[in-house]
Design a binder for these strands. Structure first.
Lengths: 346, 346
DNA sequence: CTGTTAGCGCCTTCAT
DNA sequence: ATGAAGGCGCTAACAG
């Protein structure tokens, strides 16, 4: 079995033309294709289809220096934020004839480096990173190689690289204003790691929005999580609640952190939303199913992935295209974890 | 920038040997490597490292007919069951120098075919399928091409292909016996699609276990969902509750279906677990966070993926290795969605 | 132990 | 409009 693969020469022989001609007839490049007699071309194409000929990507790639693959680096596919983004990326890339090489970095630079090297040596045509730090060495390395890069979800401070994300500042603004409109003023922020744009922009927006509303943020009422994880959420929340028993609401930098807070609440018998309101960010799948259903900031994950892939394709075809930085709008989803302040007896 | 890539001839020239020798010195194949003078080999390797030489995968692949990539087909990465499995697959494969090509089929054969063709033409060294039907045409096509295949999560009726999954029958047995031990006898089964081993084995085990306990299953107290989705779960649950108001417990073929039931319960004011107990299957992430936390059958998703990849690697290196079918043990996780029967006033 | 040679399958410039 | 020829970077069979 395993019949020998049909090759360009096979179909050339059958069509009674030279392989070179067959190649042109089958070329995607319109300019080349026009150089061949329409009838011959048609015949070649028909035969190719009949034999269901597929050009060998290795051979083609050896010649053209294109692998028709793009590398995608994410922190961890197990984080529910990423599956829809990846799905968007794959759908777009697949539709354009590319294949994706996926890698999980766990936000560990050594791992990231290794994975990147592997992809580079496999000659990916572009990289899509969901792992970017605010000023990311790896990114500059890649651009130095003249390889197209696009960032998803996290962006650079200087917006120097094509990126697609949601507007973190706008999202947090909605979250804070929602709480304020509910009568809250003692609002804490559980911030994410500041090395990522997501962490940094969200905290910045928190301060800005609070100030704009004329509410002063007490020092230390902003707590820094070291990672976007449930465990960190729980830990920081405990500290926060101990230090500020009169806080009536928390803006968490993402849903994982918020879910960690749930755990801390439960431990100390704090009821949500009766005693405290909380809003998350990302609207991860299942944020609506947990108890209480989490008020969160949602954004179109799938589209973010899709558009990022689109930018990558654009860059591959035209490396000098403009450096687009695209923000898709977030939305507030009010569920059961937020409610109007009640007088809280100390 | 983008200095021309360093090639085998470059390092051969620097090492003052013939490219052929350099190739051997750098070969992974120990048998070949031994044919070269240790000193020469060392020199070549040193220079290769200094120049940080990376063999061109396209060229190598053109020659060797190996791509060092394996294709992975799953129904939908957005289904929370899959991320940990994929992570396991990637970790194992990555550790063995392979790269993963991922595709989402949505359980649609046309899509599957297309994706498969793409991967085949890219000369993947093996395929891992999480999409298998109980007798799967696509699978036989792949084996016909002499390409290693391994199945994850879903297996074939005849176990003719290397596979890794959990023991569905054992899992359901635990679920049913748990319910019985809680005093339930009016137990319904919300079955999954019968085209998949998961659906078929779970229903089979349901009947077997009920019978073994001397409980007769009333006709129609088993309902068939057309897909493993929340929507189907809700729909079938409504029908079930309407037809059998005296049911006190449901065994759902997976968590998605169970969550759908939650929705149906809520609609008709049925309390869980007070009025009805339910157990799911898969213990998807967040099944512990929903309300009430779902009693479910868990199994080591990551390991299942990892082992499947392992089998694939084994097969790549030795196509004639035994056709292993590996079942990892499931476990019952009791949470809040199941409780002892209470007398139910009609 | 090492050099030689001959492609793998495709694209593309140069002739014709 | 098509044929011819060379080579992308690497490996492997064959000499020496």
């Amino acid at each position: 079995m395993a019949a020998r693969r049909v090759t360009l020469r096979d179909i050339a022989r059958l069509a009674e033309v030279h392989p070179g001609t067959a190649s042109r007839a089958l070329s995607d490049d319109e300019k080349l294709k026009k150089l061949v007699n329409p009838e011959t071309a048609a015949r070649v194409q028909r035969i190719a289809k009949e034999m269901n000929y597929n050009p060998d990507p290795a051979a083609r790639s050896l010649k053209t220096r294109r692998s028709h693959s793009v590398g995608v680096l994410i922190p961890d596919i197990t984080n529910p934020l990423f599956p829809p983004i990846i799905r968007g990326i794959e759908d777009c890339l697949g539709g354009n004839g590319f294949v994706v090489l996926l890698g999980n970095t766990d936000d560990d630079s050594k791992r990231e480096r290794m994975l990147l090297d592997g992809m580079l040596s496999r000659r990916v045509d572009a990289m899509i990173l969901a792992t970017a730090k605010r000023d990311h060495d790896v990114v500059v390395d890649i651009v130095a190689q003249d390889l197209p890069v696009v960032l998803v979800n996290r962006v650079l401070d200087n917006h120097a690289i094509p990126s697609v994300a949601t507007d973190d500042m706008a999202g947090i603004r909605m979250a804070v204003n929602h709480l304020i409109s509910l009568g809250h003023t003692k609002i804490a922020h559980l911030a994410g790691p500041q090395e990522f744009s997501t962490g940094a922009n969200r905290i910045k927006s928190f301060y800005l929005t609070m100030n704009a509303a004329g509410i002063e943020v007490e020092p230390n009422m902003v707590s820094y999580a070291e990672s976007f994880s449930q465990a960190e959420g729980a830990k920081r929340c405990r500290e926060l609640m101990a230090a500020f028993p009169d806080v009536t609401a928390i803006v968490a930098a993402n849903d994982m952190l918020a879910i960690g807070c749930y755990q801390a609440f439960e431990e100390s018998g704090i009821r949500c939303p009766e005693d405290i309101s909380i809003v998350g960010f990302n609207d991860a799948p299942f944020s609506d199913k947990i108890s209480p259903p989490l008020t969160s900031i949602t954004f179109p994950h799938y589209q973010v992935g899709f558009e990022a892939a689109n930018l990558a394709v654009e860059r591959i075809h035209n490396p000098n295209s403009a450096t687009k930085v695209l923000f898709l709008p977030p939305e507030l989803v009010v569920r059961k974890s937020t409610t109007a302040v009640s007088v809280k007896l100390k």
